[in-house]
Design a protein around this nucleic acid. Structure first.
Lengths: 334, 334
DNA sequence: CTGTTGGCTTACATCGTTGCAGACCAGGGC
DNA sequence: GCCCTGGTCTGCAACGATGTAAGCCAACAG
């Protein structure tokens, strides 16, 4: 069916192995021979079969990326950055959507498709460190941004705590004292939601403002979750003068609901988010948020993973760099 | 390194082929033998090497997806749907970003990575039919949604013309007469931009409204393109009472710019888009747009492609179904 | 008792590529 | 003239799985 090295060899009048040598830029080939082979490749439109090459070499040059769902803007933007970073280093990315369900996450970590990849980038949402270590095989694994502290796992971290504290401090500096938090509940201390909530609490404490659990509302981390949570908050009659959405989707949902209900943003109620997705800049009013260093995270995670893949022997220490974050002050909370 | 069938065979005390037979559910295996093999698999944690399987079977169970960039919400949402549809049929998706550049598109069509896929879904942006046919190999190919008419290519189409006409008609019905179009220029007749522009013109003609090329502004199909084009329009002093963004990102960019400049939407200027991305519903004001049947497109495209892959013999006629669209009337153009 | 059938298992070749070892040849040093 | 060196090319085995064909054994018919 497809053209193979054998066909090329026959046409060029050389051995199969010489064709292989030409393709792999083996040094000692007479220019004339090389040219004949290249002509034959051209003539037949030969293309190397990557499957066979992978089998022989034991490398697929693909990395897996497990995330909740590409329809969530932050993940889509992160995936785009990761694919570019990987591509630049000669790797392709195979995306797997976990749908944020523990079963799917586990399946993605163990699944057969791992045999198609040289390593895995994983944005854990439902599994904890123990489960991850247990489920993951022996191939290199780097966790991304969101989650759990464990000294055995490589990961590239978002400064969840500090960045959330910075956002909260900014709201406090603007004179807000009753800051609602959307996307967590009082007990959380781990995970992005927990860490961000802790940052919020720390900033309150720093400013001498009392923490009120009634201002913390949990919901799905999506636009409609944020809208619905805000509706609940408004209906409950709790007094508040700012909303901190633990990600931008939540904040944008909240913003939408507030405007629908006729509340003035930021005059009456300030809104801030977390992630700085592209959309934040173009919302009306534009959304104050924190950029967690998405591109840097993508770059460093890909680089770290590929280093692991290519130097398996050099057992570097576990790496857990943190990306720099940056507050983006816009109209919704000036 | 990794556990192979051979290891399993040794542990179970059977031949390699028997292990293969167990894995492939071959009918005639004594239950006791089967159990011994399964136990060995469990004990060793064996997992089939998909690379080897692919080489032997000539099937990779992966399909390629070429699109501009995942950071564009419409593509991200479409990709998510496609991955789910493919997954449900036992296929994985390998995404390739073309960045909307002809060179990258061509490379993606021809590239070596095609040998890793059984077929390709392609959202063409820069290439025309002739180039696509020339660049594409012999593997199944289905075009998605956006583009060129050609009787030789399978594709699942958006009703660009009709849907754009419907949006325009809706704006006209609301009393608007000077409807600016963002994302095309006067000469376009092919491609999504051209077809949507044609739909716009047709609706104008139906309503007896004169077409004015001064109202058509070209720019990048992104939020900032839409904002910048709107700024140009406002600065030019041309009179208009509505903006039709040829996709939602453009419309949202326009909406943002209009609000920044203090124009009232929809009182002064109505805004409508195209795509119904998730964000449209949560904009303020929420965005009137047209849903092009994204999920249906994903489903049908995947199904068609997989049919092609699995029945190569049954040379079905070329298929070019059109997805149903639906107008979503919201606040920005009630 | 022999031949046949059918359940169960195995050996071998094969997919397309690359690593390894060696063949072959020309030129240079002895 | 012979050996050695190094440039150039080739053959064979191997990566890990599956298809094909055949082998083996028990049971059953003749």
């Amino acid at each position: 069916m497809a053209v193979t090295m054998n066909d090329v060899a026959r046409v060029a009048g050389v051995s199969l192995k010489t064709v292989s040598n030409v393709i792999n830029n083996y040094e000692f080939i007479r220019p004339a021979t090389k040219q004949r082979v290249l002509d034959a490749i051209d003539e037949l439109g030969y293309e190397a079969n990557l499957t066979a090459r992978s089998l022989r070499s034991g490398k697929t040059s693909m990395i897996g990326l497990v995330l909740a769902d590409l329809s969530i803007p932050y993940y889509a933007e992160l995936a785009s950055d990761i694919m570019k970073a990987a591509w630049a280093r000669g790797y392709r990315v195979l995306v797997e959507q976990s749908g944020n369900e523990p079963e799917h996450e586990k399946a993605a970590l163990q699944g057969q498709f791992r045999t198609l990849t040289d390593g895995l980038l994983f944005i854990p949402l439902a599994l904890d460190a123990e489960q991850i270590i247990h489920a993951a095989g022996k191939k290199p694994l780097v966790l991304l941004g969101e989650y759990v502290q464990d000294p055995r796992l490589d990961m590239v971290l978002i400064q969840n705590h500090q960045a959330a504290a910075a956002v909260t401090a900014h709201l406090l500096a603007g004179g807000r004292r009753r800051i609602a938090v959307i996307g967590a509940h009082d007990g959380d201390t781990t995970g992005s939601n927990g860490l961000r909530l802790e940052g919020y609490k720390a900033a309150l404490a720093d400013a001498g403002v009392t923490y009120d659990p009634a201002l913390v509302i949990d919901c799905d981390w999506r636009r409609d979750g944020g809208a619905e949570a805000t509706a609940r908050l408004l209906d409950s009659g709790v007094d508040f003068d700012a909303v901190f959405g633990l990600n931008d989707a939540l904040a944008l949902g909240a913003l939408h609901e507030l405007l629908v209900r006729g509340r003035k943003v930021p005059e009456e109620i300030a809104v801030a988010g977390f992630d700085d997705i592209d959309e934040a800049k173009f919302a009306s009013p534009s959304l104050t948020t924190v950029a967690p260093g998405r591109t840097e995270i993508a770059e460093r995670a890909v680089e770290l993973l590929i280093n692991r893949i290519e130097n398996k022997d050099a057992a570097l220490d576990v790496q857990q760099p943190e990306a720099a974050f940056e507050l983006r002050i816009r109209q919704s909370a000036p």
